[in-house]
Design a protein around this nucleic acid. Structure first.
Lengths: 243, 243
DNA sequence: CTGGTCAAACATGTATACAATAAACGCAAG
DNA sequence: CTTGCGTTTATTGTATACATGTTTGACCAG
C-alpha cells in the first residue's frame, strides 16, 4: 500500500537511506550500484539519483575514482552537526521574536506544548510516541515562526545531517528515569522559548534555542558512554566511529 | 583545454549553472531536459544529475508533476540567505576562537589580509581581481579555522545560495567611490576578526563576522536601489523578483 | 617468498530507447 | 464567446546497452 504510488526514485531513496541508517552496510563500505539496485528491486538510474541525494545529505561520500561509500562520522562530527542545527534554529527563533508571530501560530505552539505535557504526565506512564511526534511538531512550528521559507528549508536540511535531528536520540527503550528528567527539562525550555518569542525577546529566544539543541548532544554522550547496549537501537549510530 | 578532462556531468553542471546565473532563462521558466541537453551538447542522463544538484543548491525548484523550473527569489530571500551565511560563518569564527588556531593558519590569514591591503592601495588604482580573489581566500581560511570539516562544507554550501556568497556583489564595474569605502571598511573588519580569533575572544569573533556578512546585504540594497543600471552585471541578480 | 606487472572481470559514466504521464491544442456543445 | 472534453503531442521517468576506466587476482620474475 505504501509502495503503490511511489516513484522508483523515492523507493530507492527511502530504501537505501533506511538500509544505511540501520547499519546494513559497514561504515566506509563501498556500494556497488548494481548490487544495491538488485537489493532494492529497482534499476540503476533511480538508484543513482537516490545516491546523489544521499551524498548531498552527507550519508554517502563520493569516491574520486567513481562510485560512493558509506560515510563515517566521528563524535566531533555529531557535536558539530548538533551545534549547527542549534545555531540555525536559534536564528529562526531570533527572527521570529524580531518580526513577531501571528496569534494563531503562537496558539498552535501552545497547543503542541500542552500535548507534550499530557504525553509526559500520562497516568499510564509516559506516552513516548506522542512525545516524539509533538516534539517534532514543535520544532517544525519553530521553523515556521521565522517567517522565512529559506530558514525553514535549511533547518530541514541540517536536521538530515546524521544524528542532528531533534528526534535523533529519542528512542522508546530510553524511557528510563534519567531520560524522563531530560524530557521535563526540555519541556521547560520549550515553554521558555515560546515565552521569549511571544515577548519579542530576540537575544533570549536565540540563546534558549541554542541551549536547547545541546540536549541532543547530552543525550548522545549519555547513550554512547553510559548506555552502550542501546546503541543499536538508535538509527545511524552504527556510522559513528567507535573512537 | 578546460573541457578536456571534465566529465559530462561537470560540463552540464557548470554550463547550466552559468546559463541560469547569466539570465539566459527567464526566472520561473520551466526547463525542458531535451532542449537544455541539446543546448549543452550532452545527453539527458548527466544533465539530469546536474539539475538534481542545482535543485539541491536552490537554483532550480522541482515541479510536483515532474521537471523543474528556474527559481525565483524575493529580496527577503536574499536577505535571509546572507543572514544564514553570517550566522554559520560566525559559528566558525566562534569555534576558531574557542578551540584556538595554529600559528601557521593565523599567519596565512595575515598574509591574505596584507594582500588585500596591497590590492586596495595599489598606486595604479584598486586591483579588483586581486581583491576578489584574496577576499574569497580569507573566507575560505576562516572556514578552515573552525577546525570542523562539517562547518567548512556547510559554509561552502550556504555560499552557493544565490547571492549569499561573500563575492556575490563584488563586481569590477562597481569600482566607484562608495564601494571603495565599503571595501576599506570590510578590510578593517577582517583585521578585527583576525584579532578576535587570535585573542580567543569567542563572542566578539562571532559578532564581528555576523556584522561583516551584513555588508553583502548593504551592497545588495545599494546596487538594486541606487545603481539599477549595474544589475545586469551581477550574476544571478536577474533571478530576483523585481518587487 | 615477495613484489611487480599484465590481464580479465567488474563497476561506473554516458547515451538512448521505451513507456507512462502530463501538457497543449482543437473541436464541439452550451 | 466561453467552457469542457478528447486527442495529439511532447516531456519526463525508467530501464538497459555500451564503452571507458578501475580494481582485483593471478602469474612470473627476482
Amino acid at each position: 500500500m505504501s509502495d503503490r504510488n511511489l516513484s522508483q526514485l523515492d523507493r530507492a531513496l527511502f530504501g537505501l537511506r533506511s538500509l544505511i541508517m540501520n547499519g546494513e552496510f559497514s561504515s566506509g563500505q563501498r556500494l556497488s550500484e548494481v548490487a544495491v539496485a538488485k537489493m532494492l528491486g529497482t534499476s540503476r538510474t533511480p538508484l543513482r539519483q537516490a545516491m546523489d541525494r544521499l551524498v548531498a545529505e552527507g550519508l554517502l561520500v563520493r569516491i574520486e575514482t567513481g562510485g560512493c561509500r558509506v560515510a563515517t562520522f566521528t563524535r566531533a562530527d555529531i557535536a558539530d552537526a548538533i551545534e549547527i542545527r542549534g545555531v540555525i534554529e536559534g536564528t529562526a527563533a531570533r527572527m521570529a521574536a524580531q518580526r513577531g508571530v501571528s496569534t494563531e501560530l503562537l496558539t498552535q505552539i501552545a497547543d503542541t506544548l500542552d500535548g507534550i505535557d499530557r504525553a509526559i504526565n500520562d497516568p499510564g506512564g509516559i506516552n513516548f510516541d506522542c512525545y516524539v511526534k509533538r516534539n517534532a511538531e514543535f520544532h517544525a512550528l519553530l521553523a515556521k515562526c521565522s517567517g522565512s521559507d529559506l530558514i525553514r528549508s535549511e533547518i530541514e536540511r541540517v536536521s538530515l545531517l546524521p544524528l542532528a535531528s531533534p528526534s535523533a536520540f529519542l528512542i522508546e527503550q530510553a524511557a528510563i528515569p534519567d531520560f524522563l528528567d531530560s524530557l521535563r527539562y526540555a519541556q521547560r525550555q520549550h515553554r521558555a522559548i515560546l515565552e521569549a518569542i511571544t515577548n519579542r525577546e530576540c537575544a533570549r529566544a536565540e540563546a534558549l534555542v541554542r541551549e536547547h539543541a545541546r540536549l541532543a548532544l547530552i543525550n548522545f554522550n549519555y547513550l554512547t558512554d553510559d548506555q552502550p547496549t542501546l546503541v543499536n537501537n538508535v538509527p545511524g549510530l552504527t556510522l559513528v566511529a567507535s573512537k
